[in-house]
Design a protein around this nucleic acid. Sequence first.
DNA 1: TTGTACGCGTTATCAA
DNA 2: TTGATAACGCGTACAA
Lengths: 346, 346
Amino acid sequence: MVTIRMIAQKAGVSRGTVDRVLNNRAGVNAETFQKVKEIAEELGYEPNLAGQMLASRKKKIKVGYIVCDTTVDLFFKSVYSSAIKKAEELEQFGVTVQFYLIRELEDHSIGKVLETVDLDELDGIAMVPLKLPSVMEFIKKADEKQIPMVFFNLDAESKQKLSYVGCDYYESGRVAAGLIGLVSPENGKVAIASIFDEESPSFHDRYIGFLNELDKNYPKLEIVNRNTQIIFQKNDYSSIQKVIQENRDIDSIYVVNPGNYEICEKIAELDTGKKIRIITNDIVKEQKRLMDEGIIVATIGQQPEKQGTLPLQILYDYIGLGIVPQAYYYTELTIYIKQNISLAPV
Amino acid sequence: MVTIRMIAQKAGVSRGTVDRVLNNRAGVNAETFQKVKEIAEELGYEPNLAGQMLASRKKKIKVGYIVCDTTVDLFFKSVYSSAIKKAEELEQFGVTVQFYLIRELEDHSIGKVLETVDLDELDGIAMVPLKLPSVMEFIKKADEKQIPMVFFNLDAESKQKLSYVGCDYYESGRVAAGLIGLVSPENGKVAIASIFDEESPSFHDRYIGFLNELDKNYPKLEIVNRNTQIIFQKNDYSSIQKVIQENRDIDSIYVVNPGNYEICEKIAELDTGKKIRIITNDIVKEQKRLMDEGIIVATIGQQPEKQGTLPLQILYDYIGLGIVPQAYYYTELTIYIKQNISLAPV
DNA sequence: TTGTACGCGTTATCAA
DNA sequence: TTGATAACGCGTACAA
């Protein structure tokens, strides 16, 4: 293993100088800079993780983790709890994590939570960039203060964005199409449903991916409600009821965003022939029984635990150790059926 | 964070003494031992990972990694390459990994590879415990020398076994049954096939799991070749040919152990109606096209990269940092279909 | 512009 | 039975 010491010795300079060169800090003679750089390259220097970690404690890194309140979207429960675990783990490296729970209120604002965030105190931010004015404004402010940000679950644009950690929703829609193709007869009839969130990018991308894949590889499948009556309101399932009653021979339904999964039970109720197969996304502990009972035949996961932990790890690696992350960390599109859902990390 | 220093101060002893207590080393007065132990408990001491890692380099840990030669089983390619990567990563912590490739020869021995392993040189071993006399004998020897072992891909018994990292084959078989149920009509006909390895536990457990799950949850499905003609020899597909020709209306086939996947293409050829849906296990890079072409409709993965990396990590954690591992680390039973196979880590 | 020295937390060795 | 001290590799504050 190559250490800074060894480079210093070979170059005939001190450890301090080598350190300056390696971290591109100012104050080094151009000639020595070159020389040291070359030797480091030649020897194949790689900083020792343990050393870096130990030294990085002094930085007292503070990061904020802004996530959706789990009362709205059950999915975020496991994201949140994974993040808390990770935060505890990072404590030993001198990292403190401030948690903020945000939630879209009736008036489409998110209240005053973000106003309590002291940007001058934070070295980095991990957040779900909800598409709301106050959130966008917050990102702008963080941008101006040059605070590195990692977005998760939802992507957004920003100068200071380090990475996006989350689902590739377009591909997720394609996988859903593949599952629909798998569980439907060749000339089957398919329906789509989703809770009210037409403007959400996750819905949109999944929807497009689903349609594209279905049209391309399963052209004989008929979508009975393409472009119509796809969206249902919370607690109002009249639109999906209409679709099912008007199409008695539906084989499968892709429930894009299931909300609290009530829609799935509703469909099972309405399905007098008991043959409709439901494909959906994610699953939370309380809803696993829907798979057990065969109401949902397959669901596509998006690694909530990864969305909880990786953003914090990325921020620590970047701020603490100077490791530059990838721009995208897509979660795996894991398929769960009755037999492997119990093994899923929730 | 609680450090050894803080404990030492509070107990009125030196760091060295605290270290002795925490690591249960001899040479400490029973009274001080108790006292220090209590204070550590009270303060909730957790060793700092960075500090441990840095210090553990002095141990110059040497471990052996014994894996199947990839020429026999393509699956082990990615296991092996993941292990090599991990070994490089562990280098910085003073760990060196010796690799040994074993392969069952014509005479059912594995040649002299294991004889070249110097057990006195190794602090730990990660291996696939093939069910062969010479391998069992090797494990016995390692056992006598008290060398901690981690088994992967295949489990075995041994006093010095730390963990098993690999597939839960019984559950794997159950998931296969679930997939068969998903892609077959309710009263469909199902066949089973597997390359010659009836005595292998992985085949046996998957087979039992498959039958149990099918009988329990899909009683209307008929297995056309239950207990007969399941096994085919390498390059001799006459038995499966016979099954398909005698049962013109087979809906799906579970290929338990696909060997080099040639069997799948053979089935597709024999399937004049082009409707048989194949479910199998794993997939290797070169065979992804079988999914693209729709010959295999779904496959169940077993995280080869985890089987490559985790055993080494476990050994380092245990030997270097004193972290006691779990007894079982089952790999996830990931389902791949055409649309998400390209995202699979291979 | 460069070198020195200390601290991070743990482990190991040597001296008392 | 204990304490003191050096070492691991890195980062940085301070001195030269």
